[in-house]
């Protein structure tokens, strides 16, 4: 029987950062991400006989982690939806009753390549993401932060494509507005 300490340490050393990053991009919360990585390594250790080496060890570990993340996200969506009505439609915040914009829309001039390295902007972005309603945040994180394809997002969250598109649309409206107020509105516009 292989030595646990040696093996676990080795896995952590080799794949820990990768697994942690993979989880963080999908669940946002460092404690949750850490738990998921831990559960993954435990499950991997317990099921190590099933690893045949046909895929790389990392691919196998990520496969286990994916299942853990999906379970976690579905559980959260289920738990929080109990006793809570459908997230209300925020479009009246952005559109008049006749469907036209409430206020004029401005084009952003920022260069995404520069923006992504601006720590101040990243801070504001994190705050704005944090303020999104739960389900929008989950779907948006999977799609834009983790870069999952829409059908993968639907599978993980167990929702229809139409529902995903509605949530992504709302999240983008809200996020854009929040960034405009807290970033562009603060004289950071280039």
């Amino acid at each position: 029987m292989p030595d646990i300490r040696h093996t676990a340490e080795g896995w952590l050393e080799e794949h820990g950062d990768h697994l942690y990053r993979f989880a963080m991009l999908r669940v946002r919360d460092p404690e949750v991400a850490l738990d998921l990585v831990q559960e993954t390594l435990l499950a991997a250790w317990q099921g190590r006989d099933r690893f045949r080496g046909s895929s790389s060890l990392r691919t196998w570990l990520v496969g286990i982690l994916k299942h853990k993340i999906t379970d976690h996200i579905r559980r959260e969506i289920r738990d929080r939806e109990l006793g809570k009505a459908v997230e209300n439609d925020p479009s009246s915040m952005f559109f008049k009753a006749d469907g036209s914009w409430n206020e004029n829309q401005h084009a952003w001039k920022e260069d995404p390549e520069i923006l992504c390295r601006n720590h101040q902007f990243r801070g504001v972005l994190e705050d704005c993401l944090e303020r999104l309603p739960d389900k929008q945040q989950k779907v948006f994180m999977l799609r834009e932060m983790a870069g999952e394809a829409t059908d993968a997002v639907c599978k993980i969250c167990n929702i229809t494509p139409t529902h995903a598109h509605v949530l992504l649309h709302r999240a983008r409206l809200a996020l854009r507005k929040c960034l405009e107020i807290n970033w562009l509105g603060k004289g950071n516009s280039s």
Binding site: L25, Q105, H106, A107, W108, E110, P112, E113, L115, C116, R117, R122, E144, M145, A146, G147, R172, L175, R176, L179
Partner: peptide, 13 residues
């Protein structure tokens, strides 16, 4: 703006 936001996330990744 949406496209820039989308691109920004690509770079962030």
């Amino acid at each position: 703006s949406l496209q820039r936001l989308h691109e920004t996330f690509e770079h962030i990744r």
